[in-house]
């Protein structure tokens, strides 16, 4: 659906996007993740044709961005960061105007506006000026704007930035419900959001792609270490270290701070591909320790993200 090859953008001497290759297939929800200034917005702007790439190839559904820009614009619904809409216009007038520009017939346009008002929860605010709306509502109008022509591709630049948790969930639901049959690319710097909404995550740092894959595969390739936290009563550190350290696959055992009286809290790190829970429990069962806590820590996307994008 979307094919990007060696995409590069320079702002003067500054290289914002550096030879990015990306392939997005139909029906995928792809999250573009990266710290601020990594080149997410620039990449999205080039995909929509708003910025001209310094070099590289963009093909969308076979159309080239240099020769068929207008066809590409018809395929894409785009929501720029912080939804810069016409503040003087009423919500209804604005959607009407977008419908006109998108070339919908009057009847179809009216139907679509009503549909979108329901879908994006705009029914009560259709006759309010956009400038008077709260940030979350503006964002929803922006979503309606992007979805006006029922586009095949939806590109959203930080669709949930600056919203409160309830609004984030609402926007996420809208995106999810829409994403069943559409191709969506969204950028974000909130990891939990990417995890919750996206099928696939592309991490960008300083203009380059540093990781690409589903959340599962990212964890697999970048998160080998498994961590099990246990709390024991009637145990001392040295014996525990000796006994548990002998378990096959365990690489490291640490005390968890802060220490609690009478309670030994341990962090057991292993790099084995097998599940360690069973072996460790078997080891503990042989002793007369009392096990009061046993949790497996999943290496979070946050850790992976930080590892990949930390300053060199």
């Amino acid at each position: 659906m979307i094919h990007v090859e060696k995409l590069t953008k320079f702002y003067g001497d500054f290289c914002a996007v550096d030879k990015i290759d990306l392939e997005v297939s139909k029906g995928e929800i792809t999250g573009l993740l990266g710290p601020n200034g990594a080149g997410k917005t620039t990449t999205l702007r080039m995909l929509t044709g708003y910025l001209e790439p310094t070099s590289g190839v963009i093909r969308i559904k076979g159309y080239s961005i240099d020769d068929n820009l207008l066809d590409i614009k018809k395929l894409i619904g785009y929501l720029p960061e912080s939804a810069p809409l016409y503040h003087g216009m009423l919500v209804y007038d604005y959607l009407d105007y977008i419908g006109e520009i998108r070339g919908l017939e009057t009847k179809k346009k009216m139907e679509r506006i009503h549909q979108l008002a329901d879908l994006c929860g705009l029914v009560g605010i259709m006759h309010k000026p956009i400038g008077e709306l709260s940030k979350g509502l503006k964002q929803r109008v922006g979503l309606a704007h992007a979805m006006m022509e029922d586009p095949e591709i939806l590109i959203l630049d930080e669709p949930t930035s600056g919203l409160d948790p309830n609004q984030i969930v609402e926007i996420r639901d809208i995106i999810r419900s829409f994403g069943k049959e559409k191709t969506i690319i969204l950028s974000t710097h909130i990891l939990s959001e990417a995890e919750a909404t996206c099928d696939r995550i592309v991490i960008i740092d300083r203009g380059r792609i540093v990781a690409d894959g589903s959340t599962e595969s990212l964890r697999k390739t970048h998160g080998q270490e498994k961590i099990i936290n246990i709390s024991l009563l009637k145990a001392d550190f040295d014996t525990a270290l000796r006994k548990l350290g002998a378990v096959e696959g365990v690489t490291r055992i640490e005390n968890i701070d802060p220490p609690e009286p009478d309670k030994l809290r341990l962090k057991i790190v292993s790099d084995s591909a097998d599940d360690m829970q069973e072996k460790i429990f078997a080891c503990i069962k042989e002793t007369d320790w009392v096990l009061v806590e046993f949790t497996q820590e999943v290496k979070s996307l946050e850790n992976i993200f930080r590892e990949l994008t930390k300053e060199a």
Partner: peptide
Amino acid sequence: TGSYEMLLTLPV
């Protein structure tokens, strides 16, 4: 206001 970005990404 940045609405120019919206306008130019419409099919015009």
